[in-house]
Simulated scan of single mutants.
Amino acid sequence: MDLNKIFKTPNPIIGVVHLLPLPTSPRWGGNLKAVIDRAEQEAMALASGGVNGIIVENFFDAPFAKDQVDPAVVSAMSLIVERLIQMVPLPIGINVLRNDAHSALAIASCTQAQFIRVNVLTGVMATDQGLIEGRAHELLRYRRELGGEVQILADVLVKHARPLSSPNLTVAVQDTIERGLADAIILSGWATGSPPTLEDLELAKAAANGTPVFIGSGADWENISTLMPAVDGVIACSSLKRHGRRDQPIDPIRVSRFVEAARRSYAPKAESPSVSSVSVPS
């Protein structure tokens, strides 16, 4: 995966737009315009704060379908992604939770989004939705059929899940890349808002052997200076929201603080002051 080609930087910072409940989800409110308006506001907040890319995710559709989502979800997400692509000059990615990578790839192909996130590409994970099996063999063939160049960012030992086999991080990373053909990998903590350890990031980076490694959860303005130098990019959301609460909208001030801290973490030390001087709004 050529990060410079997609994100125009070797160390991209990707923000996440958590969509309000979509049609057919338990908390769907019946007003798609409200969902679109919120998505547009959050995308603009992320863009103005300086992120290098955005992932659109049906986060508030919980409890999630294990694999295939309802066609109404695909339709709504396609409409929203198309709107955001017209609004913000940033690469857009898609994550259809819990693990509907085929729908994500279809949306991306039709809207010309550049990448998708796949929670389980290879292996078997025990989750709150039940057992989820990776379907890399189907997904990669589907991408070939669609004829696009949508990049696949795949989680390794994804959060809110446990592997059925031995959780050997090095083997999991290598299998995801070499046998699942992921274009980049994502490493998270055990849950939303929980960061991976520096040791795990370093292990994953070594095992990836040149394939980009992203932090997938738990990065904030305080820990990013420690974690960012070990990886190639970061995906952030909870820490960018008002008061750091995942149910709140994106706060552009928090975004800019996080982006500044992340950029300082891999800038030459002689050119940048310490990240400790960065303050964060309450």
Rank of each mutant, 00 (worst) to 15 (best):
L146A: 01
I177D: 07
S78W: 03
D183W: 06
R246D: 12
N95K: 04
E145S: 11
K33D: 14
I235S: 00
L105A: 09
S78Q: 13
G134C: 04
A262T: 08
L3Q: 07
A136V: 05
V158C: 10
R254Q: 11
S239M: 07
L146I: 04
R141W: 04
G30C: 04
E82N: 14
E42C: 04
I152M: 07
Q129K: 08
T226E: 15
G147R: 11
L203I: 13
A191R: 15
I186G: 03
R98F: 14
Q151E: 14
G123L: 08
L19Q: 00
F7D: 05
E82Q: 11
S256D: 12
T226G: 00
N99F: 03
V74Y: 01
I85G: 09
V88W: 13
S272G: 01
V156K: 06
M125R: 12
Q151G: 02
R264T: 01
A34F: 00
H102G: 03
H243Y: 14
I132D: 02
P196D: 15
L97C: 05
S48I: 03
N99K: 05
L90M: 07
N4P: 02
R246A: 12
T9R: 03
S225V: 08
R254S: 11
L146Y: 02
I224Q: 12
Q112S: 11
L181I: 01
A230I: 11
D70H: 15
V171G: 00
P229V: 08
